[in-house]
Design a protein around this nucleic acid. Structure first.
Length: 424
RNA sequence: GGAGAAAUGGCAGAGUGGUCGAUUGCGGCAGUCUUGAAAACUGUUGAGGGUCACACCUCCGGGGGUUCGAAUCCCUCUUUCUCCGCCA
């Protein structure tokens, strides 16, 4: 959520940023917001004046009672009763106007960083880096869903029987490889200074609002209506919300957290060839990294995160590229996002495996995540997060790119974690 | 799930209707002393709105009510603790 004072003082910058996102009705929305804010403050000012007067009268009444001048006190009482009617009215108006303003602010996405390319779709993302050799596969090489069946390591039909489409069952070496990847990623992250946490997989409404999943992505999360809890779509939600309503000391920066969690996404309405196998699931595993940073350091931190993920992919020897997302493809809350994609040789397409973003103060403003700056004033912190990494597509890329006529050759870095070199 | 107790500033802990946004202690920060540190002493130290800056307004778990006036009284919800029940 943008700060209303920022919108008020930087109307043109905000409009320019929203244009880059192809945000509809930007001008109307922004002006409505500015107007609502003005109205809110006008009501507040009037209300404050009345409350001040009424506070003063109440004190006087107290004094009069003490000195026994009950007649005079009775006269003042009459006055305060009138003020009370008016203040009640104003405070109702204020509440309504504040809610209106809040609702408008919830609908306005983050302003993209200057270097974010303009564009409307994935086509316009900027390829900023690519490395790793795309292997030449042998005759009869298969996509991962066929390999999964051939070696009996992932059973999609069985998952469908138990829960539904998009809930695979990992079996034998497949299950073990999952566990190996999770441990490997966590170890890489903790070695890089990220502090490991285990967090709830269900979150309340306040947490959903804090990181920006609510109110706009309501339908993408599984929701338990009985207790009003949401299954997390990513560890970003519970981990970042650790710092909701927190005022940090400047010396506490930077804060680095990593967590493994399953992720749940309803992903309603997307079916077809591109969602086969592991490409898109309702439940998947992911290891996440989260940073809370001083505003002056957040873009340096973003670079560190990008390099960290690079390091892992290099060690796994997977061919990958890095995209700087364009305004139209970026998430609602992000100011700058780099997507990592691994090349799936057998499918002949790139698969997104990580998304690393700087949210600047957008989440912090919702979270009320602040720090005391050197002048002793509260200032919003910057939040960042990235996948390090999402399992299913790494697994898909790994199965497809590492396949040989003899079986799947496990990358060296993972062998100590899974205890076998081949799936055959 | 049942019964009882509680919820106050970073922490501890006073405050049961009228200069209480809140005594005090610890912690934090600044200073004095010291070569430096510790100790001691002095000062300072919640958040939000509003203002050029003041003034002023709001907040004592959340919401509502009584009253001219509520941290203090009433209702309600939530959470925590203790006891009982159930249980991986």
């Amino acid at each position: 959520m943008l700060q209303v004072a920022f919108i008020r003082e930087n109307r043109e910058t905000v409009l320019k940023g929203l244009a880059k996102r192809n945000y509809k009705n930007a001008e109307e929305m922004v002006d409505k917001t500015i107007l609502a804010d003005e109205e809110r403050r006008a009501i507040q000012t009037e209300l404050d004046a009345i409350l001040a007067e009424s506070n003063k009268l109440s004190k006087d009444i107290g004094d009069l009672f003490k000195s026994g001048e009950t007649q005079k006190a009775a006269i003042l009482k009459q006055k305060t009763i009138q003020l009370k009617d008016r203040s009640k009215e104003l405070s109702d108006n204020l509440q309504q106007k504040s809610t209106d303003l809040q609702e408008l602010l919830y609908l306005i996405p983050n302003i993209p960083n200057e270097i974010v390319p303009a564009g409307t779709s994935a086509e316009d993302n900027l390829n900023v880096f690519q490395e790793g050799e795309i292997p030449k596969l042998h005759e009869g090489a298969m996509p991962h869903w066929e390999l999964a069946k051939k070696y009996d390591i992932i059973d999609f039909e069985l998952g469908n029987k138990i829960a539904g489409a998009g809930f695979p069952v990992y079996k034998g070496k497949g299950a073990k490889l999952q566990r190996a990847l999770i441990n490997y990623f966590l170890d890489k992250n903790t070695a890089a200074g990220y502090d490991e946490v285990q967090v709830p997989h269900l979150v309340n409404e306040a947490s959903g609002f804090g990181t920006g999943q609510l109110p706009d992505k309501e339908g993408q999360m599984y929701h338990d209506a009985t207790d009003n809890l949401y299954l997390i779509p990513t560890a970003e939600v519970p981990v970042t919300n650790i710092y909701r309503d927190v005022i940090l000391k400047e010396s506490e920066f930077p804060i680095l957290k990593t967590a493994y969690t399953p992720c749940f996404r309803r992903e309603a309405g997307s079916y077809g060839a591109h969602v086969r196998g592991l490409n898109r699931l309702h439940q998947f595993d992911k290891v996440e990294i989260v940073r809370i940073e001083h505003p002056s350091n957040s873009y340096a931190a973003l670079e560190l995160m990008v390099n960290h993920v690079k390091g892992i992919l290099q060690e796994l020897k997977l061919p990958y590229r890095i995209l700087r997302l364009c305004g139209g493809d970026m998430g609602f809350t992000s100011a700058l996002t780099y997507d990592f994609e691994v090349f799936s040789t057998a499918q002949d397409r790139w698969l997104e495996i990580s998304s690393v973003s700087n949210f600047e103060t957008f989440q912090a403003n919702r979270l009320k995540l602040r720090f005391k700056n050197s002048e002793g004033k509260s200032e919003l912190a910057h939040t960042l997060n990235g996948s390090s990494l999402a399992l299913p597509r790494v697994l898909a890329g790994l199965l497809e790119n590492c396949q040989t006529p003899e079986g799947i050759k496990i990358p060296d870095a993972l062998v100590p974690y899974c205890g076998f070199e081949f799936i055959n």
